[in-house]
Design a protein around this nucleic acid. Structure first.
Lengths: 244, 244
DNA sequence: GAGTGTGAACGTCTTCACAGCA
DNA sequence: TGCTGTGAAGACGTTCACACTC
């Protein structure tokens, strides 16, 4: 009731289980997408020194119902105490394990333009179990620059990077027209998980998992809701100052 | 069969219709989330000079089944021709209208760090119906800098900016610890649509629509699939060179 | 023949309601 | 008493199958 509204992310779009392989012990995809959010909330709680949390409190923090939270967490096993709640630290551990975060994945970031810079310097990237193995760019003028302690290397060294370090995730932050080519290069090098920031729809073979983050899409979804709001009831004249 | 796998985005997480108001003529939320993707594909087709497209072809481009494409498009009305397909230009128009893109929304971008720079310079931001009304930052050292033709202004001018221009969307690209405060400031100024890049869960009153883009979440979802793949069948030894 | 538009079947996710336990 | 864990019900989304139209 308090923090009413939406906290949307984006939307799953393909048949997710299709490319990834068979569903096994089966944590539902919808739950998987929320686990990182719980994890963040739990980390925040841990920092305040709170040791236990109820499904209701977690629900309020992440936006949703207590029942949903319990269902989600029940997929990892029964780690709550009736009448009390969940142990924060314990939950963090179980969720991390379920997400495979203890493995210390490393990522290779390709395309060091504006966005690539931001990503390389982004704390959340490295803080939670992920490390950047290398920064690559096709433009010779950008090669050699040092960001966050890493030197930008030419994209031609991709195969070498994959061979040296056990990179398992590729992040594409190139311009749109280079993305498909880079993607194929990544796949050829053996990468099976790709996070794509370029505004194109990558074509990949079966068994490769691509997630796309697309600013334009997010804005357009907001636009839809905004115009609906304006069109249906016209609740406020124009730019009336909301109370506060 | 060709470009098999996933092209996931992220996942809707809250009760989306709840904060946004009543569902009226009812384009389903899942469809709304795909409309921008169709739109992108259609623009690309238009550039190649193609004038019509079938549901099957669109499905291949965006990743999904033809039936899904037809269902989605049927929610906008019956704009296809049996035996032929859809007119590219016409579809673009109808989707744009449905998404409210003809209104020329303008956005205010707050937090001009690495990410803010990238967003301000991002073409897709301005190219499709959105314009940046102002760039704001709390740090006096960043105020005055000119990016993409706009001067960075102090965040204290937010209310003035909202009053001057009819901004309807706020984009938060500040550090995590400033995001909630900025958010409240936006809401107080009358903004009801927010795109949040800070890794925090914003608390907003009812009627405000927040979408979050979270790199860590995306990576963690990839991590889950990756570790599942590795754990279940162990299909490839370790870093075996995939054929190519 | 080719491809749309759509009811109906199916599967997935969410919500409810309550039994069970600390 | 308070809160978890979970079957069952319900809402939502996807896929199928086919009538209909160009």
């Amino acid at each position: 009731m308090t923090g009413g509204a939406v906290t949307g992310g984006a939307v799953t779009e393909g048949t997710v289980t299709e490319g990834t392989g068979r569903r096994r012990a089966g944590v539902p995809e919808a739950t998987v997408a929320r686990l990182p959010v719980y994890l963040r909330a739990l980390h925040a709680l841990a920092e305040t020194g709170q040791t236990t949390v109820s499904s209701g409190e977690l629900a309020r923090l992440v936006g949703g119902g207590p029942a949903k939270v319990r269902k989600d967490l029940s997929h990892l096993g029964s780690y709550g105490t009736r009448g009390v709640g969940y142990e924060v630290e314990e939950l963090v551990l179980h969720i991390s394990r379920e997400l495979g975060l203890s493995k210390g994945w490393s990522v290779v970031l390709i395309g060091i333009g504006n966005l690539g810079h931001a990503l390389a310097g982004y704390g959340g990237f490295t803080s939670r179990g992920f490390s950047i193995a290398a920064l690559l760019d096709a433009d010779p003028r950008r090669v050699g620059e040092v960001i966050a302690g890493l030197r930008v290397r030419p994209v031609t060294e991709l195969d070498a990077v994959v061979a040296e370090t056990g990179v398992s995730i590729g992040v594409i932050a190139t311009p749109a027209d280079a993305a498909q080519e880079v993607c194929e290069h990544l796949v050829a090098a053996g990468i099976t998980s790709i996070l794509n920031f370029a505004p194109v729809l990558l074509q990949v073979p079966d068994g490769v998992d691509v997630r796309r983050v697309d600013l334009a899409v997010e804005l357009q979804i907001l636009s839809f809701h905004q115009s609906r709001r304006a069109g249906v009831t016209e609740p406020e004249p124009s730019l009336a100052g909301v109370p506060a």
